[in-house]
Design a protein around this nucleic acid. Structure first.
Lengths: 154, 154
DNA sequence: TAGGACCTTGGAGCGCACTCCAAGCAACCC
DNA sequence: GGGTTGCTTGGAGTGCGCTCCAAGGTCCTA
């Protein structure tokens, strides 16, 4: 199985957008659950759970009932991965997935959801930068204290 | 009860450092658990739990056994609040608290812990900035789609 | 001295996001 | 045909960080 690196702009359910693609074999479009687990870093358990809770669009099955994921599914999982990094709760991601399934009439709601998430992310970044100030102050004070201990031979 | 706003550099167990102080009454140095809950935004439950798990230095008691927090405790809780914002697990905060209790020989370990946390924070900020790119791309695509729908009278 | 607000404890419960288990079916290799 | 590996399911379990409960003691005001 050849795995190639692909990281370029893509087309998904809402038109082109920059979500970095997971590694995937060239030209293939049917993956087993363990292949997808390897590409995405998610466990097979988690992939099944995502499907159960409605976070995946309908996933194809083989004639014996085994899941066969497509490149579209990988694209979706790449987006989910990004949303997960934002700290968006899984329940909100499910809501988003439901809006996508509901069709193009839900663009405004989807956009509102993403804009709310965007504000959360900006706030979180600001918080983290605030913690960096404190952390750096503390680290400096320990460094200074260590130097003082050395000088006094402690 | 007079509550004044104080936000200045402070002196704590490691020397001066910039942790913003919680609101606190002027000149007072003994607070009940519900006062501390009001200042910090933590629940009384959480404050008791922090003490139980070893995340607080020893907290004074009244003659009848009720907790009486001091300004020092408020300073410590302000630092804990910042560490919590970094995403540091509570177990690591407990480790840090134990190092503080162990005395000045642990400066190097405390510093290492904070530097590891600092790197985590930097990485998290980078991740979040990556998600902003995706979010903005998506939001733009929905905005564009909405304009297109309007033009076609959909 | 009564009433209500506030405090104490150990331990149980909760919400989130997984994570794993048991029992069974399917595919493939020797 | 037997063995190994991988897949299926519903449901139970896990770890984290709280959050709450019951039963009782304390503080404050009138």
């Amino acid at each position: 199985m050849t795995v190639v690196r692909v990281a370029e702009s893509k087309t998904d359910e809402t038109g082109s957008c920059d979500v970095e693609r997971y590694l995937r074999p060239d030209g293939q479009d049917r993956y087993t659950i363990s292949e997808v687990a390897a590409f995405t870093g998610l466990s097979a358990h988690t992939l099944r759970w995502y499907e159960r809770i409605g976070l995946m669009p309908h996933v194809d099955r083989s004639h014996t009932g085994q899941r066969r994921f497509t490149n579209r599914d990988l694209d979706w999982l790449a987006l989910v991965g990004k949303l997960r990094l934002t700290g968006m709760p899984v329940s909100d991601m499910v809501t988003y997935a439901e809006l996508v399934r509901a069709g193009d009439d839900t663009f405004a709601q989807r956009r509102a959801l993403l804009e709310a998430t965007r504000l959360d992310v900006l706030q979180r970044i600001a918080e983290l930068q605030g913690t960096l100030t404190v952390l750096d102050g503390k680290i400096d004070s320990y460094a200074g204290a260590a130097r003082a201990q050395e000088r006094t031979g402690a």
